[in-house]
């Protein structure tokens, strides 16, 4: 799924790196616990979260993710946006809640586990 499709499905606003919306991603995960993201996530390129602090961005950077979606209209701080910008992470915000946002993406084919990459 292209990141731009995620934006459209979730009626999300683009916070930064909008020029990368054309990139393809193959799987996603949703969590407010960065500990769990670091321990259980493998190749998921998209993180949906309701947690707002700089560690969300750094966690995604460490894991080579491509896109963070803040749910429930959470707005990242300027410091977070700066970090995301320089790391090439697309940041989106949506009004939708976590359960709904994940459900929409999942039912449109963005799985939790990466299917074989071709």
């Amino acid at each position: 799924m292209k990141i731009v499709t995620i934006k459209e499905l979730l009626e999300a606003d683009v916070v930064c790196n909008g020029e990368m919306l054309g990139e393809e991603v193959y799987s996603a995960c949703g969590s407010d616990m960065m500990s769990d993201v670091l321990a259980y996530v493998k190749d998921q390129a998209v993180l949906l979260t309701g947690l707002v602090n700089s560690q969300v961005i750094r966690t995604a950077v460490m894991m080579d993710m491509r896109c963070i979606v803040f749910v429930r209209s959470k707005v990242p701080t300027p410091e977070m946006v700066r970090l995301a910008e320089e790391s090439g992470l697309v940041v989106l915000t949506t009004k939708k809640r976590m359960y709904e946002a994940c459900g929409i993406l999942y039912s449109n084919g963005l799985v939790g586990n990466k299917v074989k990459n071709v």
């Binding site: 670091l38 321990a39 602090n53 560690q55």
Partner: peptide, 12 residues
Amino acid sequence: SLGFGAGMGLPN
């Protein structure tokens, strides 16, 4: 509340 403290860091 900051997103850490699951006790997963050292094993990871």
